[in-house]
């Protein structure tokens, strides 16, 4: 129980990841799959931000009090967020094209041949 409370941000990250996974695998609607993918990516953002954070830590600039947060994981995840936004943009434009071609975004209604 102690482990659960002390590291709650990591547990939430795992929970969010599983929700995203479920949406990607279980849903047949392509937009819902895409939303699932975004939820999945968010869990990783939370994970990285948790790595760097420290209770009572301040920004890492010269002359600040003794405990710092680690800025590097936050910078890394900033890059990953940009990547995630681009992925979403690409996926959405593909979905628009699918909708124009087939008139639907339900996976089961798209003709296979």
């Amino acid at each position: 129980m102690e482990l659960l409370i002390a590291k709650y941000n990591y547990w939430i990250s795992v929970a969010i990841m599983m929700i995203g996974f479920y949406a990607m695998i279980g849903k047949r609607n392509l937009i819902k799959k895409l939303i699932g993918m975004n939820i999945f990516q968010t869990s990783i953002f939370l994970f990285y931000i948790s790595i760097g954070a420290r209770k009572g830590g301040s920004v890492p600039i010269l002359g600040a009090p003794s405990t710092y947060i680690n800025p590097l994981p936050h910078v890394l995840i900033l890059t990953a967020i940009v990547v995630s936004v681009s992925t979403t943009a690409v996926a959405l434009s593909i979905l628009i094209k699918i909708h124009r071609t087939h008139g639907t975004i339900e996976e089961d209604e798209i003709p296979r041949d």
Binding site: M37, T87, D113
Partner: peptide, 29 residues
């Protein structure tokens, strides 16, 4: 035509793969 759905499925699978890689990097870090 059929390339579109193929591409979308690749987006989903590829992103999961990249996220796993990113998690691996995180753990090593």
């Amino acid at each position: 035509g059929r390339a579109l759905l193929a591409s979308f499925n690749y987006v989903i699978m590829g992103t999961v793969a990249a996220c796993f890689y990113l998690l691996g990097v995180g753990y090593l870090y």
